[in-house]
Design a protein around this nucleic acid. Structure first.
Length: 185
DNA sequence: AAGTCGGGGAC
DNA sequence: GTCCCAGACTT
């Protein structure tokens, strides 16, 4: 559920929202028979609330039809409403404990600044970015690495005005080194 | 491949 | 006032 709330929404905003939401909708079953107007008004402050309401209810129904259990098969997981590559990876990483990249706009930005830009517009089909992300998180501390990169993207490696001077990765970062050499010219 | 959803925080 | 966000879906 949390991953749906996080789609195109700043993590800090969701964090402030999280406890209240789960006290009202603690499980999938509570969403299957939730009053849709009540759910919509609840989600409105987060944005994308019409789509998110529909997605949450559809997803809850789909999961409850499967005895309330999320399928193990990767292909079946991605068929669930509102579940794309990112959420499927999140399930694989956090629920199954198998390394997978939480490759969102933030991680893509960090990787591209550090290693160099992707070739395709769509993250999901950019093989360069995919390979890079999988390689970076394929270790025994995959969860920590993922969260570390995402935190970095939100706090320091922001889209606008990144705080490169405070960044622990600036030494090997293409973006930072490029800016330094530019300044010297 | 491009358009759409969306309120709110950061600037 | 402008920009962008732990994406997924439709066209």
């Amino acid at each position: 559920m949390t991953e749906i709330l996080l789609q195109r929404t700043r993590a800090a905003n969701v964090a402030a929202f999280y406890d209240d939401f789960f006290s009202h909708y603690p499980d999938w079953y509570s969403l299957t028979n939730a009053d849709s107007e009540g759910l919509e008004s609840f989600l409105r402050p987060l944005g994308i609330w019409r789509r998110r309401t529909a997605t949450l209810v559809n997803l809850a129904n789909a999961i409850m039809e499967m005895d309330g259990r999320v399928p193990h098969d990767r292909v079946e997981i991605e068929k669930l409403p509102g579940v794309g590559q990112y959420v499927a990876n999140a399930i694989q990483l956090l629920a199954a404990g198998t390394p997978a990249p939480l490759l969102d706009a933030g991680m893509a930005r960090v990787l591209e600044r550090y290693f160099g830009p992707r070739t395709l517009a769509d993250i999901r089909y950019d093989k360069y970015l995919q390979d890079l992300a999988w390689r970076v998180v394929s270790c025994d501390k995959a969860i920590e690495v993922n969260w570390g990169i995402l935190d970095l993207s939100a706090v320091l490696c922001k889209n606008r005005e990144p705080l490169c001077s405070q960044c622990p990765l600036k030494k090997g970062c293409n973006y930072y080194q490029g800016n330094v050499s530019e300044r010297l010219v």
